[in-house]
Amino acid sequence: MTRESTSRDGEIGPLEPGTRQEAQLSVRIADIAWTALSVVAGLWVVLASVDAVRGSGSWAYCAAALIMLAIGLTMRLRSVRRRTRM
Score class of each variant (00 low, 15 high):
G57T: 06
G18M: 06
G55N: 08
V46L: 11
A60Q: 01
V39S: 09
Q21Y: 12
A36K: 12
G55P: 06
L69Q: 01
V39D: 10
A36T: 12
S58D: 09
I67P: 04
M68T: 04
E22T: 15
L69T: 05
L37C: 14
R28E: 15
W59T: 10
R28H: 13
W44P: 05
I32N: 11
V27G: 14
S38K: 08
T19V: 10
G57Q: 01
I32A: 15
V27N: 10
L25H: 15
V46P: 07
A60G: 03
V45Q: 02
S56Q: 11
T35M: 08
L66P: 02
T35E: 07
G55F: 06
I71Q: 06
E16H: 08
V27E: 14
Y61N: 07
V39H: 00
V50P: 01
V40H: 00
L25T: 15
I67Q: 06
A41G: 03
I67E: 04
S26K: 14
A36I: 10
Q24P: 02
L15D: 12
A63Y: 02
S26L: 13
L47P: 00
W44G: 02
C62V: 00
V45H: 01
A23L: 15
A63V: 04
A52P: 01
I71T: 14
L66Y: 04
S26A: 15
V40G: 02
V27C: 01
V39M: 03
I71D: 09
L15R: 11
T35S: 13
R28V: 13
D51P: 05
G55S: 07
D51Y: 05
V39L: 12
D51I: 06
D31Q: 14
S56Y: 10
C62N: 07
E16R: 13
R54Y: 04
G42L: 07
A30P: 03
S26G: 09
A30S: 14
A48W: 02
R20H: 03
V39N: 06
V45L: 00
A48C: 12
A52F: 05
S58H: 02
V53Y: 02
W59F: 12
A65F: 03
A30E: 14
I32F: 13
L66H: 00
R20S: 08
T35A: 12
I29W: 01
A41W: 02
I71Y: 08
E16M: 13
I29F: 11
A30R: 15
A65D: 04
Q24H: 09
L66Q: 02
V50C: 03
E16G: 10
S56F: 12
V27Q: 09
G42Q: 05
R20P: 04
G55R: 05
V40L: 11
V40I: 03
G42R: 08
S58G: 05
V40D: 04
I71L: 13
Y61K: 09
G57K: 07
V50H: 03
G42W: 02
D31C: 10
Q24K: 14
A64R: 04
S58T: 12
L43E: 00
L15I: 10
I32R: 15
I67H: 03
G18K: 07
A70E: 13
G55Q: 09
V46D: 03
S38G: 11
S49C: 05
S56A: 12
A48I: 00
A63S: 09
V53M: 10
L47R: 09
S58A: 04
D31I: 05
A33C: 11
D31S: 14
A63M: 03
S58P: 04
G57E: 04
M68Y: 01
W44E: 05
L47D: 05
A23E: 13
